[in-house]
């Protein structure tokens, strides 16, 4: 559905590339996470794919359309939820969606249905300028679905939202993916990536360091650990032990046999820990 080959981009066109030799393929119906710290080049790649930035070097196709010679028809098939909400503050929520929907050629969704989906139905006739940051973000997210996109670009879709709204947004994303929509998710939030993505790409300093599924990455890079709390006399002791290393396995067996266990959890490495391990960089 999306193919990118040897993509380079320099904002000053001076050979100092912010995106360097980026290549990846995304299958139809896949949720692909583009993960990296701020300034890593995530948004640059996304903006090139959506035509907001001109493709300078390399090849990219989107749903069969060449990104270099962007067809207007392609925009009927893509949707994008921006990280920074960008809605008309002088128009109401409903007017915003109504106006935007009319700019597409294909059948669009009912604005009220979308507002209901993101929990803004009761705010439909209120000007977006009076909305909180989170409400504007939800309106921007709702707008990205108005044209029933086949390829959906989501830039930090849950950033700044309270946990219950973020959970609703994640449910919508999962539902849309079930309907067969291809999703390109840009984020630095490893938890949402872990939960939603079929595959993730780690990007640092404009270069992709690794592409794989979160499960494979955990298997490959994560240590299998058990965190155990146990009583020794009146004291509660805590240990984190590998279930692979023989000496840790022996120690764990000893604790279970000789002590009263208070709590015991298996502990997988998080994507964030793997990211740091692979790239040597944090996510902030």
């Amino acid at each position: 559905m999306i193919t990118v080959k040897n993509l380079f981009h320099s904002y000053n066109k001076d050979g100092n590339y912010q995106v360097k030799d980026v290549s990846f393929d995304i299958e139809k119906g896949e949720v692909f996470g583009f993960l990296g710290p701020s300034g890593a080049g995530k948004s640059t790649v996304q903006n090139i794919l959506t035509g907001l930035l001109q493709l300078q070097q390399g090849e990219a196709t989107l749903g069969g359309y060449d990104v270099k010679n962007m067809s207007k028809d392609m925009f009927n098939k893509i949707g994008m939820s921006f990280e920074q909400s960008n809605v008309y503050s002088k128009l109401t929520a409903k007017e915003n969606l109504h106006f935007y929907g009319k700019l597409f050629d294909n059948p669009t969704r009912d604005p009220m249905e979308l507002l209901k989906l993101v929990g803004l139905a009761d705010k439909a006739d209120i000007r977006a300028g009076e909305f909180s940051k989170g409400m504007k973000h939800r309106l921007t997210f709702a707008r990205s679905m108005i044209n029933n996109p086949e390829i959906w670009f989501l830039d930090e879709p849950t950033t700044g939202l309270d946990p219950s709204i973020a959970a609703d947004i994640k449910d919508i994303i999962k539902q849309k993916n079930k309907e067969g929509i291809t999703i390109f998710l840009t984020t630095h939030n490893m938890f949402i990536a872990d939960e939603l993505c079929d595959r993730v790409a780690f990007i640092v300093d404009g270069e992709i360091k690794l592409i794989d599924s979160p499960e494979n990455l955990k298997l490959q890079y994560g240590d299998k650990l058990v965190k155990v709390e146990y009583f020794q006399g009146d004291q509660v002791l805590q240990k984190t032990l590998s279930i692979v290393l023989p000496e840790d396995k022996e120690l764990l067996r000893n604790i279970i046999e000789n002590h009263e266990i208070r709590t015991m959890h298996t502990k997988e490495a998080t994507l964030e820990e793997i990211f740091i391990k692979v790239t040597g960089r944090g996510l902030i």
């Binding site: 949707g79 809605v87 700019l103």
Partner: peptide, 14 residues
């Protein structure tokens, strides 16, 4: 101010 030009650029509007 509303940063909406980028949203318009993602529609078939030339």
């Amino acid at each position: 101010v509303d940063n909406t030009i980028s949203a318009i650029n993602l529609t078939p509007t030339s």
